[in-house]
Write a protein that binds this DNA or RNA. Structure first.
Lengths: 200, 200
DNA sequence: ACTTGACAACCAAGCGCTTGCTTGTTTTTA
DNA sequence: TAAAAACAAGCAAGCGCTTGGTTGTCAAGT
């Protein structure tokens, strides 16, 4: 797909079952305590191994964070593309993207999306670039297309880039208050968000 | 005001000039690197003293974070009350609160508001309660009043509590994209946010 | 006017502990 | 039987914090 050289960064595609289990536990811990407060001993204990054994799979704690973020970024990009697939109406595209993002944050794999945003500062600069390279391809393009479509139809007023950020902020913040087990479903929340941001 | 015993927690009102300088530097560092990545040696160096001398003013690193957050919380509460003072129209109240919050985030003291949100997880549970006790008094009440006023006038649709959180998220997220030195002023941004969330 | 003593602020040194990570060896798997 | 995976042990560095002593300040005592 991408024509950039991939040799420098370890290919995130290659994930052994063991790696996957470690990543899952690491993400959960990063979600609970943050990257810095999580020790390699914590991660190893949850994965059922000793701390030293971690470094057989990842060369550093940073690489664990990077792999988790790179994987999450790719997954969310694919997920966004799939969400708008076959939808032509821009308002419906937007709703699909909103619901998709809410699902990413609050469903079982949700901790990964949370970590991607919240622990970004903890990622080394070199790795940041690598993750951004993955992100820019598909994810942003989907959102831009949907938003521009809405704007063309007069469904959105004001600066599109600002609106985009306002929506993004609203969605990201849901992790601080939305309860999966509450009365409101994610679909209902998605509708509420859409209704809030679309002028009618 | 509060009838709870206050003896356990140190009164945040008492801040010597030295304490204030240390707090300012600490907040800047927490903003730049996060609480965990910031060492007491970092803070001391910026304050122009040695690390051990910090503990003459604060009994622990945690207490530095707590003091910063308690102070910020009180300041923001007072600031919100002052912002809506004398304003009766709920839409104008809301605009004032939005602008006030944007100012808190992006003006000179902005790092404090940022830290309050972003490093909340790093604060010990005991201290969390103390900060929440300060917060609940004024800040939330101002927002609730303005939002209910808007709803009564038909300016807001949907669940008020959800709307409140969507706005809060949009505002908090601005720190990830809004540039103080850019073309858009904070007032213009406040207007854009207001226009986005109010139905017309 | 000079001494005294109490106090806050700070320094210099380092303690005890935890951290991420390494090494050499053993176990498991295929 | 050889590679992959995990263990056992521990190192060097950095962490928050403590200790004991040195300043500068200023009001009380003589």
């Amino acid at each position: 797909m991408t024509n950039t050289v991939k040799m420098d960064a370890p290919d995130v595609l290659e994930i052994s079952p063991a790696k996957e289990r470690i990543l899952k536990e690491a993400i959960d811990l990063f979600y609970e305590k943050g990257f810095e407060r999580t020790t390699v001993r914590d991660i190893a204990a949850r994965a059922g191994i000793l701390s030293g054994s971690l470094f057989h799979h990842f060369k550093s704690k940073q690489e664990i964070l990077y792999t988790a973020m790179a994987l999450t970024t790719r997954t969310m990009g694919e997920s966004a593309e799939k969400a708008v697939e076959g939808i032509t109406d821009p308002a419906r595209q937007l709703r699909a993207l909103i619901l998709n993002e809410l699902n990413s944050i609050h469903r079982e794999t949700g901790h990964a999306a949370y970590v991607l945003v919240d622990e970004w500062r903890s990622l080394d600069d070199t790795y940041k670039e690598a993750v951004l390279a993955i992100r820019d391809n598909s994810y942003e393009a989907c959102w831009d297309a949907a938003l521009e479509g809405c704007a063309a139809k007069g469904l959105l007023k004001g600066d599109l880039r600002v609106t985009r950020q306002l929506i993004r902020g609203s969605l990201a913040w849901t992790r601080n208050w939305y309860q999966t087990d509450g009365k409101m479903t994610l679909k209902a929340l998605a509708d509420e968000v859409l209704a809030t941001f679309l002028s009618r």
